[in-house]
Design a protein around this nucleic acid. Structure first.
Ligand code: FES
Ligand code: FES
Lengths: 144, 144
DNA sequence: TAAACTTGTAATAATATTTGTTACAGGTGT
DNA sequence: ACACCTGTAACAAATATTATTACAAGTTTA
């Protein structure tokens, strides 16, 4: 199992809008960089827009950032593109046997533990901004 | 996306072997409690055995614990059942465009950040033992 | 106003992953 | 010999992910 690449693509999109800020970032342009279909990009941009991270308008070419990149954390992107439902990073087997002491309690016991772990993950994502990502890309470009 | 329930089933199996320690925990017995097919249980038990968490022998009915439950953390189970590959909790889109400054750097930039988050998750799982799970189940049973 | 281009969105297809099922070889104990 | 178990592989079914195609509706510009 792996968390959908929608997340990494979302980060990619935001970073590229920034780096291409003097140009026009259409879904086709972005798709060329990510190497996927423009419709995929439009769907993800729609999600980023829903979360207030970008501005786009039907008919008008190009997406723009709606916030400072330093205010957008990876956690914001992660939530925006909806790759993991709340409390559902780990799936738990359904319908355990209610006649078994373990079966009738395992879910209630395990779910909160899984939740703590999920929150630890998400907290970590919250410590990094997309600006950090862009700066790292710029640094890597300058060195090489 | 969700992490395979093999993980929760693995925890369930260990807990049930403990609670049924005076009985014989065959794959059929365990399957009845988890509510799945015995072959699924045998496959998972095989993984737990590979990690040294349980003892089973071909032909001999029943699985036994190979370690003290207090020494088995949820992280141990998680690794044993192989629900997430190392560094691959998050998938990253492949083949980004090497002619784009973002495309040619995004992977190298993002992967370490994802890794930090994954480790935070795993560290959290390492803080809880299967014994804690069993104790919680027992507590819940006694109250109700 | 028409043509050219865009976004938003849905329907569909292709692919991959997860889970369950069936079957059976080979081990063990009665 | 028989009944029972584990280990394992092959297969099937159910889900989820990603890509593709198509088109309505908005915008620009010529
Ligand atoms: S059914 Fe999950 S522990 Fe018994
Ligand atoms: S950022 Fe992923 S291809 Fe440009």
């Amino acid at each position: 199992m792996s968390i959908s690449s929608r997340f990494s693509v979302g980060i990619h999109i935001l970073a590229l809008i920034e780096i291409n800020k003097n140009g026009i970032s259409t879904s086709e342009f972005l798709a060329g960089s990510v190497n996927t279909n423009p419709a995929v990009i439009r769907k993800i941009i729609g999600m980023l827009k829903g979360a207030g991270l970008v501005k786009v308008q039907p008919g008008i070419a190009g997406a723009k950032l709606a916030m400072k990149l330093s205010d957008i954390t990876l956690f914001d992107v992660y939530k925006a593109v909806n790759v993991v439902q709340e409390k559902e990073l780990f799936s738990v087997h359904e319908n355990p046997n209610p006649d078994c002491p373990v079966g009738r309690n395992i879910q209630e016991t395990i779910v909160p533990l899984f939740e703590v772990a999920q929150i630890a993950l998400e907290k970590s994502l919250g410590n990094v901004s997309v600006e950090d990502v862009v700066n790292d890309i710029i640094k890597k470009e300058n060195i090489s």
